[in-house]
Nucleic acid binder design. Structure first.
Length: 601
RNA sequence: GGAGUCGUAGUUCAGUUGGUUAGAACGCCGGCCUGUCACGUCGGAGGUCGCGGGUUCGAAUCCCGUCGGCUCCGCCA
């Protein structure tokens, strides 16, 4: 029977009781995680966010409480009132923090009952219920201690960020969520205006413009933990709405930003008792792409760096390679230590893996007792020995080779490096390898519409010494665009991009040059960013900043591969909330007020 | 937009070459049990094999379509 709470007050959490509490009369409240029934003796594992305490109910000592305990089922909400008793030496449970003691209940109050749950909360990782079911019943899934721990870590991280940013002299400033759609970048989430027919707000992809406006306003050091919205297809580490620590400071050099962020991450990692070495090593974008095939390399993986084999094959008669090289492509390889024992099946799987990234094929050389290779007929024994040597392979190793356009070679070998490390368990646990990637290219070329786009965003400053080249590029020498470096930087930990930012353009003329480079006429630029160009002309200080993904960082801390593990109420890969069933339809009256009509697709 | 993969009891899964009554574990319900802590033990209930169509004497199994979850590519400044 369900009873009222009345004036009963909880005295301790379910994770609190220790030997020292023995003899105290306590009142615990929580959920029945498990009940073990021995007839006249019943045990209840009472759970709350802090832990589990064993409640003992003895029929002889407390018949009324025992009768209540018999009624209890899984996830019933209870108050257990009784005395803390020391467990017998041989009856202690070292798995529980409270395992030396237990509560001898004199009273059990059933505060609420519960239907049988749609899935079990105490399942092992392998037998965890399907994620869609858990998302539908998110309030049940969140009862699991692991998810609760993740959310509490998130809370402590955000507290630490606020404390640190305050100590560093930053002011927390909120920026609006109902803003204006700007082209470029991700797709916007759009909000129709009722008051302004036919007009729409957009939710911010990031507070970029506003943070810069704060600098123009002389606020000097801004930060906030901002909600960002991007209507793009999702991934294991992406959600349509997410949080980022957004930072901007005036008169900033990149070094000052690095130092600020390194200090912050050092503090954050203290939360998991990890001392993060600072300063982080720095690599240019060109270097990490050349050596690791990725702009976010996982430096926990030793070696397996990309080796350029193009020079050794410059004179090759093998037509596929010759044509790739003549088309300014590359041939690169990575060495898999001990890889000579890889089976044909494994190599086929790795080839399939590489093809996802556009690789035409994955060639291999195995240095077993005898050299074997998929290229034996094409290149001959001697060339292969030479290539293996250039790649740095030893006896017993294998070389995996991809030929093609440089971005395909980098992407496929870079991904292979991670994949092989994962398969071969070459990634050490509890190791954290941070780095800075600097000097990103200012622009990247998009094949589909044949023009250049900002790699970071259109407000990123080019390197001062690249300005003359930039001007030439804008004035017709478009092939120079790819040479211009931006004052942009990413912080990477364990192969995860945890922060990214740049020094911004503070000069109106340079900003206009970038808009022109992006194919905007002066009229277009004025229409889209006129207010901003105007703002730039009223004394804008040099400034720069960075943004750090809260969820990404938490994923590294936890650690987990699933962003939904570090958010309370995430959406599915198709951007739905299965609990509240969003997005939903709205009624005709709402549509009418918003001046909207649904057109069937 | 494309690809892969999964969908069978409340849950996690098994289910052979298409063939008798679709199984196991956990959970659930009931009995027994005074030191368990993943309690044990005895018994029981529980199935639109995601959905629709097709092939077949016969479909969880084969084919087509469709829906949903997850992952990846594209995309995400």
């Amino acid at each position: 029977m369900i009873e009222n709470l009345n004036n009963r007050e909880r005295s301790h959490s379910c994770g609190a009781l220790r030997k020292e509490n023995v003899g105290e009369r306590v009142t615990l409240m929580g959920w029945c995680a498990r009940r073990r029934d021995f007839g006249p003796l019943t045990f209840i594992d009472l759970r709350d966010r802090d832990g589990i305490t064993q409640i003992v109910v003895n029929q002889e000592k407390s018949p009324a409480a025992h009768a209540k305990a018999k009624e209890v089922r899984g996830e019933y909400v209870l108050a257990a009132i009784g005395e803390v008793v020391l467990r017998d030496e041989n009856a202690r449970n070292p798995k529980l923090a409270t395992g030396d003691a237990e509560v001898q209940a004199t009273e059990i109050v059933i505060l609420n009952d519960a239907r049988t749950l749609p899935f079990q909360l105490d399942a092992s990782d392998e037998s965890l219920a399907a994620e869609d079911l858990r998302l539908k019943y998110r309030y049940l899934d969140l009862r699991r201690p692991q998810l609760q721990a993740n959310l509490r870590l998130r809370h402590r991280m955000i507290l630490e960020i606020n404390r640190y940013m305050d100590q560093q002299g930053f002011t927390q400033i909120e920026t609006p969520n109902l803003i204006k759609s700007t082209p470029e970048g991700a797709r916007d989430y759009i909000v129709p205006s009722r008051v302004q027919p036919g007009r729409f707000f957009a939710l911010p992809q990031s507070p970029q413009i506003f943070k810069q406006i704060c600098m123009i306003a002389g606020l000097d050091k801004y930060y906030q933990i901002a909600r960002c919205f991007r209507d793009e297809d999702l991934r294991a580490d992406r959600q349509p709405e997410f949080s980022q620590l957004d930072v901007e400071m005036s008169f900033a050099t990149p070094d000052q930003i690095y130092e600020l962020v390194e200090g912050l991450f050092a503090r954050i990692f203290e939360l998991i008792d990890v001392e993060l070495a600072t300063p982080f090593p720095r690599f240019s974008f060109a270097d990490v792409m050349r050596r690791f095939g990725s702009d976010k390399p996982d430096l926990r993986i030793e070696g397996m760096e990309l080796r350029d084999l193009s020079a050794s094959l410059a004179e090759t008669a093998f037509a596929p390679y010759a044509s790739i090289l003549s088309a300014r492509g590359e041939i690169k390889g990575i060495v898999v230590i001990g890889g000579a024992s890889m089976s044909r099946k494994t190599l086929d799987e790795l080839q399939e893996f590489a093809k996802r990234y556009g690789a035409g094929a994955l060639a291999w050389i195995k240095l077993g007792d005898e050299l074997s290779s998929s290229l034996l007929k094409a290149l001959g024994h001697d060339t292969l020995v030479d290539l293996a040597g250039v790649a740095g392979a030893q006896k017993g190793d294998a070389v995996l080779i991809v030929a093609g356009k440089s971005d395909v070679v980098a992407a496929s070998l870079g991904a292979l490096r991670n994949e092989i490390a994962r398969r071969e368990k070459l990634i050490p646990a509890n190791v954290f390898a941070p780095l800075w990637v600097t000097d990103f290219p200012m622009f990247e070329f998009h094949e589909d519409d044949g023009r250049y786009y900002s790699m970071h965003h259109p407000f990123t400053s080019p390197h001062d010494e690249d300005l003359p080249v930039f001007e030439r590029a804008v004035n017709g020498e478009t092939e120079l665009f790819s040479q211009i470096r931006a004052k942009a930087y990413d912080a990477v930990i364990n192969g995860v991009e945890v922060a990214g930012g740049s020094i911004r353009i503070h000069r109106r003329d340079v900003q206009q040059l970038v808009f022109k480079a992006l194919g905007m006429t002066e009229e277009m630029a004025r229409a889209r960013f006129g207010f901003f160009l105007e703002a730039l002309s009223y004394g804008t200080p040099p400034h720069g900043g960075i943004a750090s993904g809260i969820e990404r960082t938490l994923m590294v801390l936890v650690p987990t591969e699933n962003i939904r593990d570090v958010m309370a109420f995430p959406k599915t890969a198709s951007a739905q909330d299965l609990m509240i069933d969003a997005p939903g339809e709205v009624d005709a009256k709402q549509l009418e007020e918003l001046h909207l009509k649904i057109v069937k697709g």
